[in-house]
Design a binder for these strands. Structure first.
Length: 732
DNA sequence: AGCACGCCGACT
DNA sequence: GTCGGCGTGCTC
């Protein structure tokens, strides 16, 4: 590099680098490097942008697109490991595939704006070395503080709260010299997992499965780890993680819902002796920064996290696991719209490492990839510890003739009573938050709508408010109908989990109930507390939404009631049947693990529907085969490709104009069809009117490229946003 | 993403 | 007469 001593003009051009900034910019910007070696691609550099500084990543040599005279200088190269070529390629690939600006994708890899600020060391309080002065009064409040304060500094607020005193008590003690200020010690420790430790004994099946995973350790491969709930998938892929660690590499595990993974973490700890690093949205800035740096520095050897963990800067990633790979929460629906399961496979290919997709109910995409020979499959047939598959019974609700306000049929009522009498736990699944999905005025039929969205507000009695489940808007319950003025005229229609709780309470007054939804167990702490209550038999009946379906193992839970199995089947969603089957199967799997037999009662008004029939017959494969045939006939994924355009804006006329312009310029090539524009099912969302267009294409068509050239033909309009969703999951 | 520029309503 | 709302556009 020292050889770059050339003529004036050329030297200026060659003394630059292209820097990708974590901003929604399509391309990197050129910067000048005044002296020293040119930073290598991947290096993290601080550069000026406008009147501020930004940390970006060297993406390559200067492009020369901007005249050298306009270039500004790189301020510094940060003393951090560079992003690997593999991760940079992943950023470029994702940007191209999702039609997002490369900088927006880079932002996911850098992940926190302040990651590079000098970590400010907050001051806290700790016990001073000196003993308390003789004359000092030791009030009870002061004693509580001193009992808690140790040689480790703790933030003021934390100390005061823990001692149940006001901050002034703490400062007074500091003034007296009993406490002293000191930097708060970081809580985060990224201890190396001990892959030699070993955890539970694997069954012969599990051992064989683990061995085949380990046999794939070198090079790129995708393996579907296919096994029913309780078959020990987690323990099996732990062995693949151990193999990656043994080879000196890192591993990342993507899980759908980080909120409820206390049990997963415990299992990891049992196998590896330490907790893994966690990566999810509510980490907090400081921990986030530390975790990011620990990953970049290679200290965090195993990271478990939500989909965004996929973009972490591992120096030498050796394994990617996507657990519950079928879960639709891997699909990010805003910002950069991507499916973490699919991008995981791409990262695996770019890094030349194995990818493990685990599920009891694999997605059709994955199953077809196995059939096409692109993915391997390892099947784990048995439930471990001798537990049996639960017995599934369908309750035909058409012959029940339930009273209007009731939602539990006779079979379920009887079973709940029996279970309570036997001292066993039951779970009711109803995928509807709140009290009732619809609240309407008895005298005029008025329904209360969200002011920002074309949705009905849902009554939540626990908080005493009406909530919009799409934009978060909430308002108080009106006393009189805003339309006709009738007083106390609102009637709840249909069941929500809160209303179901009332029905169970009336049926079993002695039972201890818990409503489990994102409203009640939103935080990891609340989730952990809930798990503790169930485990310690403080709860007899749990009533929950989807959230109870996720990887929970409650030994005393022997009855699962699916209150409305038909709920997810309405509407024209491409994956409605598949998704309903997956969630119901998962919920059913909660019943009776270990030695106790489990029962599942599925309430349905259409027992002959393929989803319900497959559930009753426990015949996943036949259902998937039918679903595959169905999709193939319609040219739908995975047999064809889809992309959606969502046109939105505050003014519906402008939105319509743009949507029509897009329709007029739609591609007309062979193998491509464009549908729409149509009003989106969510016609209005957060104050924006929405129209959708859908493109279907044959499998050999480069859909991102098709979309790019399509959009290039339509000039942007002010006040209108056009979002591209490649491989859409949601059709709202 | 910031941050500035720029063009229309309620205030000292 | 100014302060300030956030729409639009740029940052190498």
């Amino acid at each position: 590099m020292a050889a770059i001593v050339e003529g004036e003009g050329r030297a200026a051009a060659s003394r630059g680098v292209a820097v990708l900034l974590p901003l929604p910019l399509e391309r990197p910007y050129d910067y000048r490097v005044p002296d020293g070696d040119l930073p290598a691609p991947g290096a993290l550099v601080r550069v000026p942008l406008g009147k501020r500084d930004v940390v970006g990543v060297v993406w390559g040599p200067a492009t020369g697109e901007v005249e050298p005279a306009r270039l500004r200088d790189v301020i510094e190269v940060l003393p951090l490991p560079p992003l690997t070529a593999e991760l940079r390629a992943l950023v470029d690939w994702t940007a191209r595939y999702t039609l997002s600006p490369a900088g927006a994708v880079l932002r996911m890899a850098l992940s926190v704006p302040s990651a590079f600020d000098a970590p400010k060391v907050p001051l806290g309080y700790r016990r001073a070395a000196l003993p308390p002065p003789a004359g000092m009064k030791l009030t009870p409040a002061r004693e509580r503080v001193l009992a808690i304060a140790s040689s480790r500094a703790v933030p003021l607020g934390e100390l005061a709260t823990a001692a149940q005193v006001t901050p002034s008590v703490v400062s007074a003690l500091a003034k007296a010299g009993v406490l002293e200020r000191a930097p708060v010690a970081s809580g985060a420790v990224f201890a190396a997992p001990d892959w030699r430790k070993g955890g539970v004994r694997l069954t012969p099946d599990q051992r064989a499965a683990a061995d085949s995973l380990i046999a794939n350790a070198n090079g790129f491969s995708v393996t579907l780890l296919d096994g029913v709930t309780g078959s020990g998938k987690t323990e099996v892929y732990f062995e693949a993680i151990a193999a990656a660690l043994a080879a000196g590499k890192e591993a990342v595990v993507l899980l759908p819902e980080i909120a409820l993974t206390a049990q997963w973490l415990a299992r990891f700890q049992a196998r590896f002796g330490v907790a893994p690093a966690e990566w999810h949205s509510d980490l907090g800035t400081a921990l986030r920064r530390e975790t990011w740096r620990a990953v970049a520095g290679g200290q965090a050897r195993v990271v478990v996290g939500a989909r965004s963990a996929l973009f972490l800067p591992f120096p030498d990633l050796g394994l990617i696991v996507v657990d519950e790979e079928h879960d639709s929460s891997f699909k990010q629906e805003d910002g950069v719209i991507y499916n973490a399961r699919d991008i995981a496979v791409v990262r695996g290919r770019l890094a030349q490492i194995p990818v493990v997709l685990a599920s009891a109910t694999p997605s059709l995409e994955t199953v077809i990839n196995v059939e096409r020979g692109r993915y391997k499959r390892i099947v784990l047939p048995e439930r471990f510890a001798g537990a049996k598959q639960p017995e599934v019974r369908i309750a035909d609700m058409r012959i029940e003739k339930l009273p209007r306000q009731n939602f539990l049929g006779s079979a379920l009522r009887t079973a709940l009573g029996e279970n309570l009498a036997a001292g066993e736990q039951s779970m009711l699944f109803l995928n509807r938050r709140g009290y009732a999905p619809l609240t309407l005025c008895r005298s005029c039929g008025h329904r209360i709508e969200c002011r920002n969205c074309s949705t009905w507000l849902v009554e939540h009695r626990l908080v005493g408010r009406l909530l919009c489940h799409h934009c978060g808007h909430s308002e108080g319950l009106p006393i009189a109908c805003p339309s006709c003025g009738a007083a106390e005229s609102f009637a709840a229609c249909g069941p929500g989990v809160e209303r179901l709780e009332e029905e169970v309470a009336a049926l079993l007054p002695a039972a201890r109930l818990a409503v489990v939804t994102s409203d009640t167990v939103g935080s990891p702490a609340a989730a952990a507390e809930f798990v503790r209550q169930v485990t310690e038999r403080e709860i007899d009946v749990l009533i929950g939404t989807q959230i109870v379906a996720k990887g929970h193992h409650f030994p005393l839970l022997t009855l699962v009631g699916i209150v409305d199995a038909d709920l997810g089947l309405a509407g024209g969603d491409l994956r409605a049947a598949e998704r309903t089957f997956q969630v119901l199967h998962q919920v059913a799997g909660r019943a009776g693990r270990e030695q106790r037999p489990g029962r599942v009662i599925v309430q349905s008004y259409m027992p002959e529907h393929p989803v319900i029939a497959a559930l009753a017959a426990n015949d996943r494969d036949r259902f998937m085969a039918e679903e595959a045939k169905n999709r193939e006939e319609r040219g739908m994924p995975p047999y064809g490709r889809l992309a959606a355009l969502i046109v939105s804006g505050p003014d519906h006329a402008t939105v319509d104009t743009m949507a029509s312009a897009l329709a007029r310029t739609a591609p007309r090539d062979d193998g491509i069809e464009v549908w729409g524009p149509a009003e989106a099912p969510l016609r209005l969302l957060r104050g924006r009117h929405r129209r959708r267009l859908l493109l279907t294409a044959a499998r050999d068509i480069d859909v991102p490229e098709t979309m790019r050239s399509w959009l290039a033909r339509v000039p942007p309009m002010s006040g209108v946003r056009v979002q591209v969703d490649i491989d859409p999951y949601s059709f709202l």
